[in-house]
Amino acid sequence: MPISANIQSIYTDGACTGNPGPGGWAAVVYFTDGSLHEIGGSAAQTTNNRMEMQAAIAALQLIAESSHLSAVTIHTDSEYLINGVTKWVKGWKKKGWKTAQGKPVLNQDLWETLDRLNHPSIEWRHVRGHAGIIGNERCDAIARAFASGKPPHLQQQSASNSKATDAPNFLAPVSEVADFSSNDLIIDKSNTNSHLASNTSMIDSSTPSSISNEELPREVRVAQLRNLLETLRSADEIATKGYLITSSELADLMDVHASAVTSRGEEWRWRNWIVSRVRREGNQILWELERADAINPDDNSDHATE
């Protein structure tokens, strides 16, 4: 896959039916020019942990193939993956791939691949699963689809058809997101590593690339709603208690890139809240949230909307 822009961040996830059983993995790659790529695959008999690792391997391979030099953040909801790749693997190698109890390390083949591909410029960041985070939710949907034997349409969104600060609208309950036109492309991911799953395929770009909410299983839609409510409750608590949050924290809450926060100006509206820039502390900008319905109706100040 030709890559012309720098990678900004990557979300990864894995899923398994039965654990062990049929599994799927996915990665959504966001670029600095606003474009994005989705990759994914499946395995007939595997575990959830192996699928989490497969997704991370695919992400690291893509970074290596792109000759990307600047820092990249990989987001995952797997603490097993993060702890393994950042902490445990060093001790395992010293002990000849044995645990502290002297037992063979599970999934050694994938840990060796991860360790070989990992790089100091990679930041591994844990995110809560099923918390309404767009990249994580989309990866979860792709991975589960592959695990269920129903490979989804994988998307490639070009910068010309995207908002540089937003993510694709599939399982995205948190923020306003980019619309997709009929010209959006579908991508494939070649199986270039024996550890990667085999069911990734080429799909013609004329294939419809969106999934309506109504087509999702009811339990998925209910889970989306619960995730949204959790995000909204967090925002409400921040507003009620008068907490100040940084640009990056606000971006995480809204699930947008930090530049989307700082580029909106001093004061604007997000969902039920007025977001105001309060002050700068060092290199950090602090923001305050206030319930829009708590604003005095006689206050004629202008509030920019989304």
Rank of each mutant, 00 (worst) to 15 (best):
K241E: 13
P217S: 10
L154F: 07
E137F: 06
S158A: 14
V85W: 06
D109N: 12
K95C: 00
I211Q: 13
P2E: 14
E219T: 12
V105M: 09
S206E: 12
T99D: 12
A71E: 14
W270A: 03
N83C: 01
T86V: 09
A167H: 12
G96I: 09
I187V: 11
R128W: 04
K241V: 01
A27W: 03
S301Y: 06
S78F: 06
I274N: 03
T246S: 15
V85P: 03
T305P: 00
V275C: 13
Q61R: 14
P120T: 05
S206G: 13
P104L: 08
W270Q: 02
L228I: 00
C16V: 06
G149Y: 07
N191W: 06
N6G: 15
L250K: 08
M53P: 01
S121M: 15
R218V: 13
N118R: 10
L114I: 05
L114E: 06
E306K: 04
S248D: 14
P22M: 05
F31P: 02
P151H: 08
T32F: 00
P120Q: 09
G91P: 02
Y80W: 05
P208M: 12
W287E: 02
Y11N: 13
Q224Y: 01
T246D: 08
Q108T: 14
A56Y: 01
Q284I: 09
P297H: 07
D188C: 10
Q157T: 08
N107E: 11
K95Y: 00
L289M: 04
S160A: 15
G14Y: 05
E79Y: 00
V278H: 04
D184K: 03
T73A: 07
E306A: 11
A26F: 11
Q155H: 08
G282M: 10
A55E: 06
V256E: 08
S190C: 02
G23W: 03
A44L: 12
T47D: 07
R226C: 03
S234H: 09
D252G: 01
M202K: 12
S35A: 13
K163R: 12
T32M: 12
E38D: 02
R269N: 09
Q61I: 11
I63H: 02
E214H: 04
W97G: 08
H126Y: 14
I203T: 13
H130G: 04
E288V: 00
A167S: 08
L36S: 10
E306V: 09
H75L: 11
A197W: 03
Q8D: 13
P20I: 08
H75W: 13
A26G: 11
N199C: 04
D184Q: 09
S175C: 10
Q61Y: 01
A147F: 04
A58I: 05
L253K: 03
I274V: 13
A178H: 08
L117G: 06
D302K: 14
T113W: 00
A100D: 09
T246K: 12
G242E: 13
N49G: 02
P152M: 11
A131E: 07
M53S: 02
A56L: 04
L60W: 03
